[in-house]
Amino acid sequence: MTITLRQLEIFEKVAVCGQVTQASIQLLLTQSAVSMALAELERLAGAPLFERSGRRLFLNDRGRQLLPEAREVLSRVRRMEQFLEDSIGTPVGSLIVGASTTIGNYLLPAMVGEFSRLYPGAKPLLRVGNALQIEQGVESGELDLGLIEGLQHLPSLMAIPWRRDELVLIVGKGHPWASLGRATPDMLRDAAWIMREKGSGTREIFETAMERGGVNYAVALELGHTEAVKKAVEAGLGVGCLSRMAVQRELDQGWLFEVANPVDLQRTLLIVTRKNDYRSTLMQAFLALLEGDQEL
């Protein structure tokens, strides 16, 4: 049995895309080449790895067992390629950077653009998710490094303090708190809270701060994206708590109003990497850019 790296790469891409057509586009191959590689891999495996429903392909039990092994092999090969590319001493190649939602949407895009300008041969790829998803991606090797806005969950990772950030309470202009400008602990307890989902760094910092302040509260609406929270608060559905950098534009425009409160909502943004992992020239250059932007 001789399985090639190309077959594993095609297998992994089809598993993610769920169809040959999309996988072939992303791999810059013909559909027939992708189909032939899958057929040969399944022949070598002695049985199918996918269940087929029309044009859709779903991993079966054997395929699900193979996928993490294939990803590990591909990850190791990419690290070897990166190491060889680094021998020329200039940051080149792809760096997959994960960022939790607030960082990924409001802070990192400009920095990724600046990095690409400084190093034309480098290609930083940005992946956005909640804080827990980013940590898991770094641990599994799907991400080269991550930036999160919550508390560290996985002790297997190294966490480096990066920047300070502040969460603010926000209400819409028609909310009674908008004219008051501040809220008491009793008001916080009785509020209809509109929050990010569990696993969000913003949600976790809010929960920790409220618990530390001895304030009970009830979540009226849970939404999976910062923009959705802002729109719901702006529509008068309740009170939100988000990063200042995510709501500064709306505060400046008078679409949302900041409410002073007795709870400490300061937090530290973190860079997370794998412990004892090889730091390529490319990663070192990106970390240097991040460290130059520190505001601790």
Rank of each mutant, 00 (worst) to 15 (best):
L282H: 02
E295G: 03
V128Y: 09
Q152K: 07
P48T: 04
A131C: 14
L154G: 02
A110W: 02
E72M: 08
A37K: 00
L270W: 14
L67M: 01
T101H: 10
R76T: 05
Y119P: 10
G150C: 02
S53W: 05
P124F: 04
K173W: 11
M36T: 14
I88K: 06
D61I: 04
L126G: 07
Q82A: 03
A260I: 01
L180K: 15
F83R: 11
V128W: 09
L180H: 12
S87L: 12
A23H: 04
L154V: 10
E85R: 15
G18S: 06
R182W: 14
V233E: 03
A235F: 06
A39F: 06
A183P: 07
W162Y: 15
Q31V: 09
L167E: 12
F58D: 08
R249P: 05
G104F: 00
L143N: 04
G199M: 07
E258S: 13
V247A: 07
E51T: 14
D252I: 12
P185A: 08
Y119A: 11
G137R: 01
S200K: 08
V229Q: 03
L221I: 11
R52Y: 07
R196D: 09
Q136P: 00
L67D: 00
L151W: 04
F58P: 01
M158R: 15
V14D: 05
H153I: 10
G93R: 05
I10M: 03
S35F: 07
A47F: 09
A159G: 14
L29S: 02
D165G: 15
P124D: 02
L251S: 13
L296R: 09
G141Y: 01
Q22T: 15
Q31Y: 01
R79T: 00
T268L: 08
R267I: 02
P120R: 11
T21K: 14
K231D: 12
S94R: 10
G54I: 06
S94V: 15
Q284W: 00
V112T: 08
L59T: 06
K230A: 12
G121Y: 12
E250Y: 08
F58G: 07
G63I: 02
A220E: 11
D61T: 11
